[in-house]
Design a protein around this nucleic acid. Structure first.
Lengths: 182, 182
DNA sequence: TATTGTTATACTCTATAACTATA
DNA sequence: TATAGTTATAGAGTATAACAATA
């Protein structure tokens, strides 16, 4: 109920309202996040898994195994945070960590049986409860914001180039020899 | 570059992609936030003002004075955080805090001359640099997310009613007798 | 030297609870 | 008792820098 919703919707929207909207979207986003997290709570039994935990679980459930590097680029989670998330998931017995014998710098991740079950239950919940409309809503969402950001980012005022290091992940085989660590 | 963008845009979007999108939107939102914050940095001279600081500044610049309670409901900022924000803005000399003599529980906020200047410079920057498209993008954004949240929130699975205490702010006069505190 | 991952720290915003002062 | 605001704490996620191990 910011000042943005006091009359002529998108027509008379002033610049000020952009600020209100930003804050509102940010809040609603948290709300949506916690909604999804509730699904995982129900699916997993624990109440300690966040949206980012879900992301990791779901991504891993799609592949037999996955390099941590690919997980990073696929989810966009900061490496420093990813380490903690995998720590916690490993500690809960959902994920196993291996070290690649091919390139010993890399970590290979794989779900355990309970981890895979949990991920599948989460996906089932999401499938039952989300509808095309919602998915499309989220879809539009991302592109809308990206439009906003890219337009302003190219402006003369902002010299500092935004370090966008988005690389696609495509090169995971998941069939190399690995050894357990943790 | 999540797994969501590997082919048929919104058509073949699976439930999984909702998760990726959520995380992506969250990240892009931060990006947009920092874009706006750069405007304030340029307008204010300091680099220590966040989007929420902007919100407060801009909201205050629209009224002669403003109850903190109204600021809370207008911006949606948590009371606990609002205290800190106003602390900082007061410390920077942008805001003055008064105690209402009418209801001595309430705090009345007003911009100082530098604060008002900064707010106006910020608004000018925003006006020059944002376009209708971007504003509409943000507008759609909020409603999209809200649709997602409200649809899932009414589900049988989630019993805990979301405590939505959104009240509109309309009752600030800004012409009552106030006394300085800080 | 460059890359992968870890550790540690600081920061922003939220949520909660306990508290003061006032109504 | 209820309301306005403050304080303190914990949490999630990000950013950054320093570091180890490997390539």
């Amino acid at each position: 109920m910011s000042a943005a919703s006091t009359g002529d919707e998108a027509i008379d929207m002033t610049d000020v309202d952009a600020l209100y909207k930003m804050a509102e979207v940010s809040r609603v986003l948290r709300s949506a996040t916690s909604t999804i997290e509730k699904f995982v709570h129900l699916a997993s039994g624990t109440n300690d898994l966040t949206l980012m935990h879900c992301l990791v679980l779901v991504h891993l459930s799609r592949k037999a195994s996955c390099k941590q590097l690919d997980l990073k680029s696929a989810t966009g989670i900061a490496p420093t945070h990813l380490t903690k998330l995998v720590d916690e998931l490993t500690h809960r017995g959902f994920v196993r960590r291996h070290r690649s014998s091919w390139d010993r710098r890399q970590i290979i991740l794989a779900l355990t049986a309970p981890g895979r079950e949990t991920a599948l239950r989460l996906l089932t919940s999401l499938h039952e409860l989300t509808h095309k409309t919602q998915l499309n809503a989220i879809e539009e969402l991302g592109s809308s914001l990206k439009r906003f950001v890219s337009t302003t980012a190219n402006d003369e005022w902002l010299d500092r180039g935004s370090a966008h290091t988005n690389e696609v992940d495509q090169l995971d085989r998941g069939d190399m020899i690995v050894k357990p660590i943790n």
